[in-house]
Write a protein that binds this DNA or RNA. Structure first.
Lengths: 345, 345
DNA sequence: GTTAGCACTCACTCTCTCCGAGTGCTAACA
DNA sequence: TGTTAGCACTCGGAGAGAGTGAGTGCTAAC
């Protein structure tokens, strides 16, 4: 059933008042504060309808109404007005991202602080994952006897390295030979291309250094398949500014959840991947136990079609969605700019 | 003034009861629960003395006594009994550290979870810093045109890398030449050894590649001097299990502090560096504003005399010091073992 | 269809009282 | 002289009860 325009106006007023005050909204207040040209009694009738339709709920009989999940959902999808950031906000944001970054790690870990500072909610950032990436080059660097560093560069321009140890002696020139052998044989390949058969052939060709090769190739595979999303969290304490978390048990639940990067990563991975739009999960939509009264807003960033990641915030369902969405959009744009530059693309 | 043995026993009883219950301790309870052979009245007199001497304080007239900072300090220095972990605790600890670690980063970030799980307090871990380290080798790996990866290995066995871009073309063999030139010229040098004069000489010798060299050398210097302690935090939510943090403002203060790695790093760096012992700062001893009712317990770990770092916990001043100290000792031992193995020393 | 009016509900706050744990002091005891 | 029993006093916290006010639903009039 469609909502009449009047119902929409009233619903919007309720959602926005509730977001601003965290108090259940009563009919009189709406009549007073919003110039709808309706009396409290009329609004009361409409509110009763909206409640029957599932958009509003009552904490108890003699309080005002608060939006239900459905109410928020409708607000976010159909009623929410674009928030335009003030000049001050924009210049503050630009200033805080105006550093020269030279490491992927540095950008990503700092971006979470920026997000939480701008939105005043806890921020979550997923380290970029690679998408169908291929090996660009592999290098072995001898660190000391029986210990070497493997450096893998993927075609997304991401560098990964790991120290490995092996038995058997090998000297500088031999390791260089192994190094270029591997690089030549793996360059341009994706994880799917490195079949056991192909690896086998390589082991045989290398003879003495087969063991070393084995270790290197398994690390290369790891690099290409890596998908345990590394996650950064910033400004978690911001959640305590919201009265719904002034109950200590509620707060503990939240912080226990955030203590586990794994949890957070899993939650992020459940958010929409495909589109450029911002995706929003309200309350139980996230499907995470114990997070029924938080909402998550996430934007996807990508560099070319190779590197992909997510930035977002977690807040109470009663969240300033409009502000959050436009802040995330701005930050996302700036982030992509920085990453593009850094990746030299 | 020395404390009589009787006063010591009473002080110890009070501290331990208060640690266990978080309730002010009254004279009757001590008489009942501890077999001191004294009546409540006598204990009362001694408690009044202890209060006069500054070891105890009263939250209000008709409550029991709680230890003052001085009281805790005396307890920690002189009264605390060694806690022996149970077989279950030890085997649990060993199991949780029984993974095969292959990256420094991985060990360090995971150790904070282990500590918080074992102690039930928020854990802080400082990434190892290098001490007077020297260059072992430097490698340049060409990633694409005008972009290379610098890999620096220090004599502590730590690997650092950074992507750099430069103007001017350079091919694989040329970059190898530059790479081995740099490595040869910097190997064995510490930050102090790489004087501007020496760098100048190198620039000149390299001619065309002077610019590239400049970038590389400045990165090498960074690696050797790096001392912005990276910090990992685990199990922060554990703080909420302590009733002194059930006040939401107190909790917010704590979490805001922990939100800033910088804060935490600064605090850690103020803790004792020199000795092998565990260092404990009680309440305001830490000198950090807003952390007057938390204590910090920190152990130093080191691998040889090169790598040094800290592991520790932050908890309420009313903390189970005995348990925390022995847990940290055990974890520290195990950590050092793992690091030694990993660094191949 | 809209509005004014009115009875009713219910969380919250404030006040008051009671209770119990704990203290300090005094006097008696070993 | 050190220890203990006894007692009056203090004070936070829990619980009961009354009052308040924001809000609702329903009815009747416009």
């Amino acid at each position: 059933m469609e909502l009449s325009q009047r119902k929409c106006m009233i619903l919007q007023a309720i959602v926005e008042d509730y977001i601003a005050t965290a108090e259940p909204v009563g009919s009189r207040n709406i009549a007073k504060n919003h110039d709808l040209g309706l009396s409290a009694a009329t609004i009361r009738n409409e509110m009763a309808d909206l409640e029957d339709m599932g958009y509003l709920e009552k904490p108890h009989t003699s309080a005002g109404r608060i939006p239900s999940e459905l109410g928020y959902r409708f607000y976010v999808d159909s009623l929410m007005q674009r928030y335009s950031m003030t000049v001050d906000e924009i210049s503050g944001l630009q200033k805080s991202m105006d550093r020269k970054y030279d490491q992927l790690e540095g950008v990503i870990s700092e971006i979470s602080d920026v997000i939480s500072k701008v939105t005043k909610y806890p921020a979550v950032v997923a380290f970029p994952r690679e998408n169908k990436s291929r090996v660009r080059s592999v290098r072995l660097v001898l660190i000391e006897e029986r210990m070497a560093l493997v450096v893998v560069v993927t075609d997304a321009g991401v560098v990964k390295n790991r120290r490995i140890s092996f038995s058997g002696d090998i000297d500088y020139s031999a390791i260089d030979a192994v190094s270029s052998f591997i690089s030549k044989n793996l360059a341009g390949l994706s994880a799917a291309d490195i079949t056991p058969a192909r690896a086998m052939l390589m082991y045989e060709a290398m003879g003495d250094y087969g063991e070393l090769l084995k270790i290197v190739i398994s690390f290369v595979m790891e690099c290409l398949q890596e998908d345990c999303a590394r996650v950064y969290i910033g400004g978690a304490s911001n959640i305590l500014n919201n009265p719904e978390f002034s109950d200590i048990d509620r707060a503990r639940e939240f912080f226990s959840f955030m203590d586990s990067r794994e949890n957070v990563g899993k939650m992020l991975s459940l958010m929409g991947n495909d589109n450029d739009d911002i995706s929003i999960k309200i309350g139980s939509e996230s499907g995470v136990d114990g997070m029924e009264d938080t909402s998550i807003v996430v934007a996807n960033y990508h560099v070319g079609d190779k590197l992909r990641g997510k930035i977002g915030i977690i807040g109470p369902t009663r969240m300033d969605y409009a502000r959050v969405v436009s802040s995330l959009e701005m930050i996302n744009d700036r982030l992509v700019e920085i990453l593009n530059k850094m990746m030299g693309q």
